[in-house]
Design a protein around this nucleic acid. Structure first.
Length: 513
RNA sequence: GGCGCCGUAGCCAAGUGGUAAGGCAGUGGAUUGCAAAUCCACCAUCCCCGGUUCAAAUCUGGGCGGCGCCUCCA
């Protein structure tokens, strides 16, 4: 995996045999989540699934920052207590995670529930001479840390700036707050340095130590957190403990808000392109509405969209791109439906198609079989891609190839024709589909039947019955070779968003466009 | 100014020394009463100019272009 600290890929070796500790910087819960907040959780959700699949015992921690200047400001603007803002936005965040299938997080500690640990941490830093109290605040003394800047490749001396509003209380501008003295009316906790609250960075050092230990395996977060946040975490933890904080630092790329090209008019193409890139998504005005986006596109599409691109890449986000990814997803859902037609079994039901959860158990035994040899090759390539810095995009390309192989096989041997399908071939097809199930589960995709894509679902019983009636009438017209009538029925249904697909023996329908 | 990233087909995107994955869109074909779905085929020499090498999209030097951080933004 690529380690930001060394700026190169390194072989993954755990600190304790078979166990992995992962800490991902979570959100400051002051506003509803946007798509950018989901990149880290989705990729790390897949990373954890993959590591577990490979046999590791993984503990994944995502913190919730529930005390902060921005929270205090929101609290004032809305006239409600800070904890209420935090609770509300934490619920929003977690609901979005659920929608995207992120359910692998083991612990979500909150800063305000770890104040004592934080205070102890700060006290140790002061004792050891790495921090100093100053008029109710406590600052980290950057000059005392010779290693400062190693993550972001900066030096303490090179730090510009005046040190912000607290400059007069700092020894040098680059010093950062560990503890902030409370101003009147601000939420605060008692401490040896007076009433106050934790600085931004200290909670991560304190909580990761409490849960994962003084040195742990993987620390993740957005690229934008590398400096100053992660740099300061390292400074705090390593000065406090005298040992490395983290083995591997992983940083995901950022998302910029893109405006749908069709909506920008009256300018030259180039200007339009410029204008379409609004700014980093977190700052852009029109970027919100993650819940709405999920409502429109569905969590699976967004998850697939995010996993298609390498996690270290930054890119421009548009809903068009999500929809396009969704078109690609249908290749998979159609194959899954085909599996159900051929075998009569529910792809998602582990009683019918056992889910392989361990890497060692998924090996294909029969490499002499024309289909299974292909399946095994795709599986190997998929795993190789994931082994190489979690290259989920390259891995997904192998899944497309796997599906193509299965479709080809089903076409070639007419597996959908009960009178022509050979049991041995259906069995091989089933085994291939099982590998698809195994590998998509590693990415957290296709874990259950989609809510709206499946035939009939998402509509009322009455609607379904009416559609079946129309299909029946059309079938009668077709039987009489009245194709003008049958085509008219199909076209008008399509205009209403009901797409028909004739198969041998029967007609299926789906909602689509 | 300091630190860092990027420039691959119409669009998105993998690939970091051995002769260009995959997706979307498109074209032709098989299949279909016609469609849809599926399958087959086609669709790039990798921003530009030098250098290293038997061999470079991949390494190196320069140029042009785009972007991020240095502002408590994932």
């Amino acid at each position: 995996m690529y380690n930001t600290l060394s700026r190169q890929k390194e072989l993954f070796q755990t600190i304790r045999p078979g166990k992995v500790g992962i800490y991902l910087c979570g959100p400051t819960v002051y506003k509803p989540a946007h798509i950018g907040h989901m990149v880290g959780p989705v990729i790390f959700d897949a990373i954890k699934r993959y590591l577990v699949y490979c046999g590791y015992e993984v503990t994944w921690v995502v913190n919730i920052t529930d005390v902060d200047d921005k929270l205090i400001q929101q609290s004032r603007e809305r006239g409600i207590p800070m904890f209420q803002v935090a609770t509300e936005m934490t619920m929003d965040y977690m609901a979005n995670l659920r929608s995207l299938g992120v359910d692998q997080i083991d612990l979500m500690p909150r800063a305000t529930e770890n104040i004592e640990e934080i205070i102890r941490f700060i006290a140790t830093l002061i004792e050891r001479g790495f921090a100093y109290a100053s008029e109710g605040d406590v600052f980290f003394d950057v000059a005392r840390d010779p290693g400062y800047g190693k993550l972001s490749n900066r030096t303490a001396e090179s730090q510009q700036g005046e040190g912000g509003g607290a400059a007069s209380r700092k020894r040098s501008p680059g010093d950062f707050a560990l503890w902030k003295g409370a101003k009147p009316g601000e939420p605060s906790w008692p401490s040896p340095w007076g009433e106050g609250r934790p600085g931004w960075h200290i909670e991560c050092s304190a909580m990761s130590r409490r849960i994962l230990g003084e040195t742990f395996d993987i620390h993740g977060g957005g690229l934008d957190l590398m400096f100053p946040h992660h740099e300061n975490e390292i400074a705090q933890s390593e000065c406090c403990h005298g040992q490395p904080m983290v083995r591997y630092w992983l940083h995901n790329g950022l998302i910029k808000a893109g405006i749908e090209s069709g909506k920008v008019g009256g300018r030259s193409a180039r200007e339009e392109e410029q204008a379409a890139i609004d700014d980093k998504i977190g700052r852009s005005k029109g970027a919100g509405g993650l819940a709405d986006l999920i409502e429109r596109q569905g969590g699976e599409r967004i998850r697939f969209f995010l996993l298609r691109t390498h996690y270290r890449s930054s890119f421009v986000f548009t809903e068009e791109a999500v929809a396009e990814a969704g078109t690609g997803l249908e290749t998979f859902t159609r194959l899954i439906e085909r599996f159900q037609r051929i075998t009569g079994d529910d792809f998602y039901d582990p009683a019918k198609l056992p889910l392989i959860r361990q890497r060692g158990q998924g090996e294909i035994a029969d490499l002499s079989h024309e289909l299974l040899r292909e399946v095994a090759a795709r599986r190997t390539a998929f795993l190789a891609a994931m082994d190489d810095d979690f290259n989920s995009g390259a891995a997904i390309s192998e899944l497309f190839e796997l599906v193509r192989g299965l479709n080809k096989y089903a076409d070639q041997y007419e597996l959908e024709q009960p009178d022509k399908a050979v049991a041995e071939r259906v069995s091989a097809f089933r085994r291939g589909a099982q590998t698809l199930r195994e590998l998509t589960a590693v990415l957290g995709l296709f874990r259950s039947a989609p809510k709206s894509a499946a035939t009939g679902a998402g509509s009322s019983e009455l609607t379904g019955n009416l559609i079946e009636l129309l299909i029946q009438l059309r079938a009668e017209a077709r039987a009489k070779k009245e194709f003008a009538t049958s085509d008219q029925i199909r076209q008008k249904m399509a205009a209403l968003g009901v797409l028909l697909e004739d198969r041998k023996g029967q007609t299926e329908w789906r909602i689509g466009s």
